[in-house]
């Protein structure tokens, strides 16, 4: 899959772009890698920001 900056395209039927991120979970901080979730269904939800209203 081509992942060159500005050239990557997110499309249904294509592999989800891999990432790592620091996360807050179960009262602690943890590094999360998308590929850790292989074998599971994942819903990745983006939202504008904490403490917003919706």
């Amino acid at each position: 899959m081509s992942c060159a900056e500005g050239n990557s395209r997110v499309m249904v039927g294509r592999e989800a772009p891999e990432f790592t991120a620091s996360a807050f979970v179960n009262g602690g901080f943890k590094n999360i890698k998308l590929s850790d979730y292989r074998g599971k269904w994942v819903v990745l939800c983006f939202y504008p920001g904490d403490f917003t209203f919706v």
């Binding site: 997110v10 499309m11 249904v12 039927g13 294509r14 592999e15 989800a16 998308l34 590929s35 979730y37 292989r38 074998g39 599971k40 269904w41 994942v42 819903v43 990745l44 939800c45 983006f46 939202y47 504008p48 920001g49």
Partner: peptide, 16 residues
Amino acid sequence: VNVRGRFLIDPDGVIQ
């Protein structure tokens, strides 16, 4: 900011 995007990813890592 990130807008309200939601992606359903299957067990093979493919966006469905």
